[in-house]
């Protein structure tokens, strides 16, 4: 099997307990989700708060196991206990809150944490740490305390920490939600570079539309289901559906869409300002 992730109708129920600790019922967070992600792809999962996208991310990293259905990561079933470590090594995960995932008090020690757990020999750990920190452009901060870094820098350290485990795939679970615009750019740039240069599969979970436009495929989630999927062009040609799922369009697409409403014959699925400018020039020349 040469699929990075293959999920077949997986569902997941959270258990809800009452004040006395007795089972009150279950909440369905994932509802029959099927996924098919190739090696080397850049995937974005869009969805409103509470749409189930974080729960889905945790399935790929085997932090949660589906209540129904099966999911294979790099050809391995996540339900099998003995696959756990291999799956977590090949599909690394970066979380939302930069403060709650850095374990060590020095940057390089945090990046070394994953390889230490994998039992990598000491000399190789150092090589991996150096290489990973250089890849995300944080090598000069290797001796710093994480407390002194900006949000974007902390997230890049977290990415390096995953990278040092030599994964085939990195899942980024809303890595930019708590960052300022500058930090957001840094993190997205790092993720794209990993995909372009290192050919690592990226699964980016976000609700910033602008971050999705460079991906190979987009999945839109709502109420635990995948409700839309396709290329960015396809997805962002369906503004009404996106609004229904509490999402929106990238800025340039919004402008193009409004212009179309005003009678200017622009094509669907314009994603960035360069495309918009090109199309407008075409229209002007046609006149």
């Amino acid at each position: 099997m040469d699929k990075m992730v293959f999920a077949d109708k997986i569902s997941y129920d959270y258990k809800a307990y009452d004040e006395n600790g007795e089972l009150k019922g279950t909440v369905r967070a994932l509802d029959g989700v099927s996924l098919d992600i190739k090696h080397g792809d850049f995937i974005t999962i869009l969805g409103a708060n509470g749409s189930g996208k974080s729960t889905l991310a945790k399935q790929i990293n085997a932090l949660l196991c589906p209540t129904e259905g099966t999911i294979f990561v790099d050809g391995k079933d996540t339900a099998e206990e003995e696959n756990l470590l291999e799956i977590r090594q090949s599909a690394g995960m970066v979380f939302q809150n930069p403060d709650n995932q850095i374990i060590a008090t020095v940057v390089e020690e945090d990046v070394g944490f994953g390889p230490e757990n994998l039992g990598v020999p000491t000399k190789e750990i150092w090589e991996r740490v150096e290489e990973s920190l250089k890849t995300v452009g944080m090598y000069e901060y290797r001796k710093s305390s994480p407390m002194r870094l900006s949000g974007g820098q902390k997230q890049r350290v977290s990415i390096a920490g995953v990278l040092a485990m030599h994964p085939k795939c990195i899942i980024l679970d809303e890595p930019t939600a708590m960052l300022d615009p500058q930090g957001r750019k840094e993190v997205i740039r790092a993720a794209r570079a990993l995909n372009d240069v290192e050919k690592i599969t990226i699964i980016l979970i976000t609700h910033y539309m602008e971050e999705a436009i460079y991906s190979d495929r987009i999945f839109v989630m709502d109420e635990g289901k995948i409700v839309m999927q396709g290329t960015p062009k396809e997805i962002f040609s369906r503004p009404d559906e996106l609004t229904k799922h509490r999402l929106t369009l990238p800025m340039a697409t919004q402008v193009a869409y409004r212009l179309k409403e005003e009678g200017i014959p622009l094509p669907d699925g314009i994603l960035n300002r360069k495309e918009l400018a090109r199309e407008l020039i075409k229209i002007k020349e046609a006149k």
Binding site: N49, H207, M209, L247
Partner: peptide
């Protein structure tokens, strides 16, 4: 901060 597009609006 952290809200989805509709929530922000």
């Amino acid at each position: 901060a952290g809200l989805d597009p509709a929530g922000r609006e």
